[in-house]
Design a protein around this nucleic acid. Structure first.
Lengths: 339, 339
DNA sequence: TTGTAAGCGTTATCAT
DNA sequence: ATGATAACGCTTACAA
């Protein structure tokens, strides 16, 4: 372990003043090209790195953004869709020199709220990947004045980047009507405390009516959660409660849709011959499943990067006038679960 | 935005000295129960939180651990197996009051090595979730004296928690021989720059011979990468190059194995009737696929938590005598891809 | 039991 | 162009 260096020891070793070292480090103030070069070379040689805690203490900017990743039923990082968005967000932000830090409820000995944690860490901004409307702490955070961006929930004062769910469902139902030429549709929705699921359901009702597709009270069923198993259970329930079987089932997310596919298989209903299935998200596995899943692709890279750009804009200029909700277009990808 | 508070302003507002505030915050030194209570109550009321940068600057401990998550082909957080381990690691560490921070190559304006980054952030330790033997920066880091733990690679000086791959393959081949009563085996390995894949391959060769199972030079094939597609391609190649078809195929990981399953399906080879398939890892999807996949389950929770415990031990006492490699037992889970 | 004051390693504002 | 020096907000002896 080499000896510890500070701008002080460096200055001494170079016969300069600490301030001068700082100046070349920050490319600020006036330093002669000669000394600058000398300092830079020396720093590189001895592998000196400034202590960020001191820098933060002094300069107020931490170049750190807090991440809220609410862990519904402990899926957390394993949830492929959100992990993927987070990954893109992270990549972009790091390229810009920022750093991510997961917001935790406990630091050292103390329990604390999101807001307290953010004050403590002096984060420059917050990214809410997945949030929960029943989480009071989120409201406090969003209203605190700390720049916040989300890719999941919509709240007054919160900037959100989200896929255009309405358009996604519209495209899907147009496809059902005009390409597959079917009319009896049903939907497996997800839990409505997710904004995205709620929007998709509303759009479903709206466009099903507009396009004069055939539905009734029994053609909507709710998955209990986000995963495969809840989709499996939901479709069993759906098929039991519908006297007249649907020709097409829309499913609120791919994770759930894959469970639906499995459920139908176990019921010995052939997809797409007997019933067609359409998901939402285009997770990696959608194209690998058998049958491969027709789905509405969300542009996860775009979502993550747009969120990152927006947050950076907000952090660098908190007064910036930016639309609160940015909607990104989606694309229907036809695969084997429809025809 | 409420006014900014420091132990100074708090002290003034309470007619006490800053040092006293600090003492109650750190439950150190002598403070009368009365003042302690008064301070605590006040702090809670106004929502004061100490600035961690100042605390770090002074006290040398940051309660932060750096995470190296090498992103092979950009899968990163989407790779379910490692994400899951990381998730458990994270949960445990946070419960203990530590915080995670992804190690990035660039901070602010400067490019830097892992080691520089760690010095800069003054992390207390490092967790290498996924590493790469060709990554020189890792060696520098491991030899720097900073406590390091990995769940993937084995290096002198690096503490590693890893599944017992040898045992996993042994159990599997015992099962093949004694339960399924087959003898012609083949293996789809992963890229050998992953230590785990290398160990599994060696064990395969060892036990196949020991148990007198039938193999030859053409019965081993290498997937190019970690994913579904590389498994698909690999099995196509395997079936082409083997004149006498195998009865059982061992696959180095589930991600790859699911591609193998799909490949066999496209070749119109029935699983498990014609060929049986066994994976490794037990990822979430293994049981949902059709046919569901027989696999060697790694205890990801155990892996993550053990790594966390080990790292904490190391950070709190860098001189601790701890075994460099901890091997965790694995379990074979029989499903529909074998019988 | 409580208060005082010297750092910790920077940055930024002055002088020089 | 360079050098002193005062913050930044905390911890920790040590003094009162």
């Amino acid at each position: 372990m080499t000896k510890k260096r500070t701008i002080y020891t460096i200055a001494k070793e170079l016969n300069l003043a600490p301030g001068t070292i700082s100046k070349v480090l920050n490319q600020t103030g006036n330093v002669s090209d000669q000394t600058r070069a000398r300092v830079l070379a020396y720093i590189k040689e001895v592998g000196y790195v400034p202590a960020s805690s001191a820098r933060m203490l002094k300069s107020k900017r931490t170049y750190t953004v807090g991440v809220v990743f609410t862990e519904e039923s402990d899926i957390g990082l394993e949830h492929s869709f959100f992990s993927s968005i987070l990954q893109h967000f992270k990549t972009y932000l790091e390229k810009e020199g920022y750093e991510l830090s997961f917001i935790v409820k406990k630091l050292g000995k103390h329990e604390m709220s999101y807001y307290e944690w953010c004050m403590n860490k002096r984060v420059d901004g917050v990214y809410i990947v997945v949030g929960n409307y029943s989480d009071q702490g989120l409201y406090e955070l969003v209203n605190s004045g700390i720049p916040c961006v989300s890719t999941d929930m919509i709240l007054p004062g919160l900037h959100t980047v989200i896929s255009d769910n309405d358009q996604g469902i519209k495209v899907t139902l147009d496809y059902v009507k005009n390409i597959t030429k079917k009319s009896k549709v049903a939907m497996v929705s997800g839990p409505l405390n997710s904004k995205a699921f709620a929007e998709r359901l509303i759009a479903f009702k709206k466009y099903a009516e507009q396009l004069k597709l055939i539905t009734n009270e029994s053609s909507i069923v709710y998955a209990e959660s986000f995963g495969f198993t809840s989709g499996y259970n939901a479709v069993l329930k759906l098929m039991k409660q519908m006297t007249e079987k649907p020709e097409v089932i829309l499913v609120a997310s791919d994770d759930i849709a894959l469970g639906v596919l499995k459920g139908l298989r176990d019921l010995e209903i052939k997809v797409p011959e007997d019933i067609q299935v359409i998901g939402f998200d285009d997770i990696a596995f959608a194209k690998h499943f058998t049958p491969s899943l027709t789905t509405v692709a969300q542009d996860r890279k775009q979502l993550g990067e747009t969120a990152a750009k927006l947050l950076i804009a907000l952090m660098e200029n908190p007064e910036a006038e930016i639309d609160e909700v940015v909607k990104l277009p989606v694309t229907l990808i036809a695969r084997d679960s429809t025809k």
